[in-house]
Design a protein around this nucleic acid. Structure first.
Lengths: 245, 245
DNA sequence: CGACCGCTTTGACAGAGGTCAAATGAGGTT
DNA sequence: AACCTCATTTGACCTCTGTCAAAGCGGTCG
């Protein structure tokens, strides 16, 4: 994990106190003692858009939290078919204490900054950081719920429902810091290209594009450029996802 | 969770020492102190095939391990479309410490016996059972990996690949107790009906049935009745799943 | 033994989404 | 402004899987 090509990386330290994900990441409920421990061993690392962060099967030497940017977890078949199995947005955790191999490919889709910990020291510190331990289990359970929700999407939803679900997912996650409820109209900045969305939604790029066009023609969204989506009526879009919420 | 309709249930105690899942379940690495704790609070509960064990949104009052039988975790949409998001086989854990609501519908597909713990007492004991705590995180991570593997199957695999993957999954899980490697030929007893398989694989029952027929015509499997599958050449079937393993 | 019931298989057909190919558009660069 | 590149959109067509319907099969129960 985390190759050593220094040309494309940057390292630096930032005080946890001023960290943008301080209250949502694995350290969310750490007390000041725990925070001091973490602060002493962490280091930052930045990856450029498109860069591979880790490959399945690599020795797992570094665990990290996403501080800024977007990355994906993906799984591929021999013939190249690929499915994104997780979106990594700021505050998400990468890697598993207790595992010694990377389970899925990790790729930066925008410039990504990670707050990294070497695995062994982190595991050793963990016994002295009960709040971090609990938070880690909690985040893992959240990831599991998210994965299972996505299974319903992949197995049963139509292309239109998939796109609507995705737009609302991004809308929710991007306001997660601020208010928890969505306004009646929202502007969404998509962190993913059409192709990456397709890989996440179990579709092809053409189908994604056609569904964007269809939603636009139906007045459910309007586009400003290709990455900026305006939703004039969130409830109307939510009615397209098919399930209760 | 765990409704109180006594007509369809049975309760009893069994010593952990003689438990068939003692070395694979959440108690796998419990020491004798921890085991004594668990033993003192656990109780067994049996559900009939087809019975609902818990529904999404129910208050989560009981956590449990599957001792025998097969159950499913599933998620449904308003219009009835349903996706099974997890198979629960012996040794699997149901429920999440720290959550107060059931996240997915749980249904018995065969007669199922659970080893149950009331949630609050279990959570309190957990701080005194570090080995159980670690095992729980480990099992949750395994579940997460399994869910993500399934996302690849649901999003990208063809019907034939899905069936082949499923057969090999069941083959592996049913010998998990004994040897870890699969012989070159295997007999598989399916715990699921065609319909339940379809719900798990993101297919319809007709497609599942057609793929069984196709695999049989291609000599990759033979059927004895409808639930017993003989695989004469495991490697040949494995070549049909599409991915590395 | 024969009727019945639920599960499974098979058939005919339709449609959603994939494939292949070309056109359009949006950013950069010179 | 003209050009280049790459992402996106659109079009035409095809195929896999879903839908609807009927037939087959295996138990069970009178």
């Amino acid at each position: 994990m985390l190759d050593e090509d220094v040309k494309t990386q940057a390292r630096s330290h930032t005080k946890c106190a001023s960290c943008p994900v301080r209250h949502r990441a694995v350290c969310a409920r750490a007390n000041s003692d725990e925070l001091t421990l973490l602060d002493s061993v962490k280091f930052y690392k930045t990856y450029q858009a498109g860069q591979t962060i880790a490959l399945r099967g690599d020795p797992l030497e570094v665990l990290s939290s996403v501080v800024s940017g977007t990355a994906t977890l993906s799984q591929s078949m021999e013939d190249g078919r690929t499915q994104i199995v997780g979106l990594l947005l700021p505050s998400d955790f990468i890697g598993r204490p207790g595992r010694d191999t990377v389970a899925h490919d990790v790729t930066a889709v925008t410039e990504v900054t990670l707050c990294c910990f070497r695995r062994k020291p982190f595991e050793n510190l963990l016994v002295n950081m009960p709040h971090v331990q609990v938070r880690l289990l909690e985040m893992t359970l959240d990831d599991l719920d998210a994965a299972r929700d996505w299974m319903l999407l992949l197995g049963r939803k139509t292309a239109r429902e998939k796109i609507a679900s995705f737009l609302l997912l991004i809308a929710h996650r991007s306001v997660a810091n601020a208010e928890k409820t969505l306004a009646n109209e929202v502007r969404i900045e998509l962190p993913l290209s059409r192709e990456t969305m397709a890989t996440y939604l179990g579709l092809t790029i053409e189908t994604v594009s056609r569904q964007f066009t269809a939603l636009r023609k139906d007045g459910l969204i309007s586009l400003d450029g290709t990455r900026s989506v305006f939703v004039p009526d969130v409830a109307a879009l939510a009615a397209e996802v098919g399930d209760g919420e």
